[in-house]
Design a protein around this nucleic acid. Structure first.
Length: 225
DNA sequence: ATATCGATTATCT
DNA sequence: GATAATCGATATG
């Protein structure tokens, strides 16, 4: 691709703390742009936690905010159920749901416990572990031009990171110990764009989709980027 | 480039 | 029984 991508340099990644997620999901969504999602299994070795297995890292470039019971398009709109219970629990945890009989989608819970706001991950820019992502996706990747097929779209990124409801629903995304977490690698984003959400049938007028302007990994029709 | 459609199942009415 | 925060394939301009 001829376009400038966000940095792929390897630097220390610091996990986000719980307080980051104790805010309105619109604010959390905006702040999550430019952060990274990490899948890194940790194994017990002697008395230390060691990194084990392939490490997958990707930058968050597109998210949507869902506003709990105030939001007709949110899964929590009708109150707490068995499916959405995580949304009403503590902030910073993974809410994973299964959709269209085919795909998983990843969200992170926001706001204080008892309030059900969340942020949906819609697209990522792969930074490391692309071979592992391709294997998880079941596709061949021949060049960087194929990378968007790994993580552009909520179903795709979940599959690339091996995320399922059975495995990851309720996982604490603030701790590297959990093997799936969100961190800050020092990247400083430039402009952000806000648009209506994609793929919903209710509350379509509200602008609650946040993207890194011009990033080639953002999903959906080009005009919405 | 845009449009339409089928797949496939957990969840809720 | 209907629906759904999607994807990939196919058709058409």
């Amino acid at each position: 691709m001829g376009k400038p991508l966000t940095s792929t340099q390897t630097r220390e990644i610091l996990p986000l703390d719980r307080a980051f997620f104790v805010r309105d999901p619109r604010r959390v969504a905006r702040e999550l742009l430019g952060k990274v999602l990490v899948r890194q299994e940790l194994v017990q070795q002697d008395k230390d936690r060691q990194a084990g297995g392939a490490c997958r890292i990707a930058r968050i470039v597109e998210v949507e905010a869902y506003r709990g019971e105030k939001d007709p398009a949110a899964h929590a709109a009708a109150g707490r159920t068995a499916r959405n219970a995580v949304l009403f629990g503590p902030p910073g945890h993974a809410y994973v749901y299964f959709i269209y009989g085919n795909h998983y989608c990843l969200n992170v819970s926001c706001e204080p416990e008892g309030q059900a706001g969340c942020v949906l991950f819609r697209a990522l820019e792969p930074l490391a572990g692309m071979e592992e992502m391709a294997r998880a996706r079941g596709i061949a990747v021949h060049s960087p031009a194929d990378w968007p097929k790994l993580t552009s779209g909520p179903g795709r990124l979940a599959q690339a990171f091996g995320i399922t409801r059975a495995r990851d629903n309720g996982r604490d995304l603030t701790s590297p110990e959990s093997g799936l977490w969100i961190g800050d690698d020092g990247f400083r984003r430039r402009s952000i764009r806000v648009t209506p959400r994609i793929g919903i049938s209710k509350a379509q007028d509200k602008a609650l989709r946040y993207i890194l302007a011009g990033n080639p990994f953002v999903s959906g029709p080009k005009k919405s980027n």
